[in-house]
């Protein structure tokens, strides 16, 4: 019976143009929706599978504002049975701050799953810092994770092939997209999710901060696209170009 904690972060779902807030501290998300990282969606899927497979339970956690309950509810509708909100403005928290706050909640859990990196700040470190805070082993960038007989086995795509890890519980694993297909919520899942009370906790202490001075947009690369043609008639000019670029033979 494994008790799993999975950590997710609410992030703006930007696709085209990105705009910054006036204080240049964040992405202006007034006109876009919110989501979680693709890695975290896979982590949620793995958490639910481990909970189901071992007869345990999966808890979803986020450090964020009240708005992030939207992302917690989605995870609940997918099979997590508890949700914890560490209520704080995440933009003021650096990765070490977030790891410390998660650690305060994570001690009771056998396995903690996180994403490999958050979709917005991309710090690539909360999971590893969490492992040190808890004094637990950590497997990084796993595509598949299984729990049996008091141990976690995980597979990571390494430079020489698929790397196998086997570590005793309790452990921390960060997840990369691609090893599992995240499920979609069912109607009953959504109904259940509505009934769960989100447990709200306050941070242990004030953050040291992310060291951010400001955000800026990369200089726009002035670009003039040369249209080679329309439809299949363009094939000749395309192959001329490929030959000129030295890649057609």
């Amino acid at each position: 019976m494994a008790d799993v904690l999975v950590c997710i972060k609410r992030v703006p779902e930007v696709a085209g143009e990105v705009a910054l807030t006036d204080d240049a501290q964040g992405v202006d998300a007034r006109h876009v929706g919110y989501t979680i990282s693709a890695h975290e969606s896979c982590a949620v899927e793995l958490a639910v599978r481990i909970a189901t497979g071992t007869g345990g339970a999966a808890t979803v956690l986020t450090l964020g504002t009240d708005d992030a309950v939207e992302q917690l509810r989605t995870a609940l509708s997918l099979g997590c049975s508890r949700a914890v909100l560490i209520e704080a403005d995440p933009s003021g928290f650096g990765p070490a701050d977030v790891a410390r706050e998660i650690a305060a909640v994570a001690r009771e859990h056998d396995v903690v799953l996180l994403g490999n990196d958050a979709a917005d700040t991309g710090d690539f470190q909360v999971g590893i810092r969490l492992a040190y805070a808890l004094g637990r082993p950590v497997v990084n960038g796993a595509r598949t994770v299984e729990v049996a007989d008091g141990a976690v086995t995980a597979q990571v795509d390494g430079p020489d092939g698929i790397e196998n890890y086997a570590v005793p519980l309790p452990a921390v694993v960060t997840v990369l997209e691609g090893g599992v297909e995240p499920r979609y919520p069912t109607i009953t899942g959504r109904m259940k999710a509505k009934k769960v009370r989100v447990e709200t906790v306050t941070p242990q202490r004030g953050p040291d901060g992310p060291g951010r001075v400001r955000l800026l947009l990369p200089p726009a690369r002035p670009n003039v696209v040369e249209v080679l043609g329309e439809g299949p008639d363009a094939a000749k000019s395309v192959v001329d170009l490929l030959e000129k670029l030295g890649v057609a033979r």
Partner: peptide
């Protein structure tokens, strides 16, 4: 398209086979 160096506007299911045919022809 707007960020690319070159572009062909059209249905990939027509354009790509035509490119393949042209490469094979040459």
């Amino acid at each position: 398209v707007t960020k690319a160096t070159y572009a062909v506007i059209g249905d990939m299911h027509e354009v790509v086979p035509a490119i393949n045919a042209e490469i094979r022809r040459r």
